[in-house]
Each structure stands twice: as C-alpha cells, then as structure tokens.
Amino acid sequence: MSGVLYLIPNTLGDGDADALAQVLPEPVRAQAAALGYYIGENAKTTRAFLKKVGTERPIQEIEVRELNVNTPPGEIEKLLAPILAGADAGLVSEAGCPAVADPGALLVRRAHERGVKVVPFVGPSSILLALMASGMNGQSFAFNGYLPVDAAERGKRLRELEQLSRKANQTQIFIETPYRNRAMLDTLVATCAPSTLICVAVDLTLPGETIVTRTAADWKKKAAPELHKRPAIFLLLAS
C-alpha cells in the first residue's frame, strides 16, 4: 500500500518556532514533525522549516528532495517512488500553501494519477488572505501570477485585466518580484480608471503587515506604504 502525500503549509516569511505556531495549527505541526520524507523547493530552507517545527527524529535522518522550476518532468516519478513504496511524505513550498502558484502541483497531479492519497492541511495563503482583506469580490476572482516585466507589456496586460474585471465583476490578483513592487503600483495607478479599486497587501501574517484598498484616484493623492523588497499581493476590481 502506498503512503500519503501531505500538503503542509509554510510561513509567509522568516520567523522562529513561535511565529510558526501563530499560523499553523497544532495538528499540522504534529504531522509535519512525524514525517521522515520531505519534498521542497530548496533543501536548505526545507530543513530550516523542519527545525522550527521540531521533528521527532534528528533532521539529518529525514530525507529531503527538491522540486522546483528547474526539476525535469521525468524526475517527478522518482520523487513519488518512496511514497508508492509506502512512505508518508510532506510537500512544502518556499512560502505559503504548496501546489498553489508552486511547482509542487506537478507532484500532486502525478500522485492522483498513481492513486496516492493526497491530504491538504490548513495554513496561510497570501492570495486568499489578501482577497479576504481587500473588500473586493470574493465570489469571482482569478490569480494571474506574475505580469510582464517590460513596462509597455505590463501596462497592456493590466488594461486587459481591468477590462475583464469590469466585464465579469471579477477580482484580478497578481504578484510581482519584491524589488519591482513600486513600479507595479505606479503602473497600476497610471493605467487604471480613476474609479478602479486597487489593493496592495504587504507582509501578510508578519509584524509589518499592511493592507490598503483605494481607488486609483485616491492612490494618486495619498502616500503609499513602503513596498521595496517586501512580499506583496496586488488586486484590482473595476466598476
């Protein structure tokens, strides 16, 4: 009989064991501590996560393998092999929920194809936390990942998303590399109609958490929070 693939959420930023306890329920931490096989984007940060969890066995005895954007598709089966042989495993992401905007989704899909039981656990999702706190439409929304880096292409894509939002009354959610956050906000404010709502959610679940929703017109009038190199989620809703 094959083992179980547990999807174990991570914190949304750096922190100690006390910080981990603030965002992960005790049953999740207990299951995470009991596993002897882990798959994560980076072996070093996965072990750092396990150190905060407090494992039942020495960390050096826990097998950790990597699954990230550089993993060849053919390696997925090898990652699944110990689970098919009966070992329970934990899948973790660099931050937040595994398999959501995360390469771990490939492993989860293959697990279903091979009849492996997949168990998702409760934990912080920056996408959903930002949506919850934005005041925007939570009945219809779309996550669009990263937008184009080129300024002209980014503006074009934002106009497309604003038009879609207006037509479908749908919240559009996206992210940016932290050092380009300010450029993203500037493009949003310059591109969107004055009445379009724009939300910026920064450092979610962290001590510096800041969530601000304003119209594009109000963003032009009021000071923006400091965004440089801070993890942020952007949302818009056009009327």
Results as ranks from 00 to 15, higher is better:
Met1Ile: 11
Asn10Leu: 06
Leu20Met: 14
Val23Gln: 02
Leu24Pro: 01
Arg29His: 12
Gln31Thr: 06
Glu41Pro: 05
Thr46Trp: 05
Leu50Asp: 03
Glu56Thr: 10
Arg57Gly: 08
Ile62Gly: 03
Arg65Ser: 07
Asn70Gln: 10
Pro72His: 06
Glu75Arg: 01
Ile76Asn: 02
Ile76Phe: 09
Ala85Ile: 09
Asp88Ile: 02
Leu91Glu: 03
Ala111Val: 04
Arg114Gly: 02
Val119Asp: 07
Phe121Pro: 00
Gly123Met: 01
Gly135Ala: 12
Asn137Ser: 12
Ser140Ile: 08
Ser140Phe: 13
Phe141Gln: 05
Val149Trp: 14
Ala151Lys: 13
Arg154Gly: 02
Gly155Ser: 11
Arg159Ile: 15
Glu160Cys: 09
Glu160Gln: 14
Gln163His: 15
Ser165Gly: 10
Ser165Ile: 12
Gln170Leu: 13
Gln170Asp: 14
Thr171Tyr: 07
Gln172Pro: 04
Phe174Leu: 10
Pro178Thr: 14
Met184Glu: 09
Leu185Ser: 08
Asp186Lys: 05
Val189Pro: 00
Leu197Asp: 07
Leu197Tyr: 05
Cys199Arg: 00
Asp203Arg: 05
Leu206Asn: 03
Val212Asn: 05
Thr215Cys: 08
Lys221Pro: 04
Pro225Ser: 11
Pro225Leu: 11
Pro225His: 09
Glu226Ser: 12
Leu237Tyr: 05
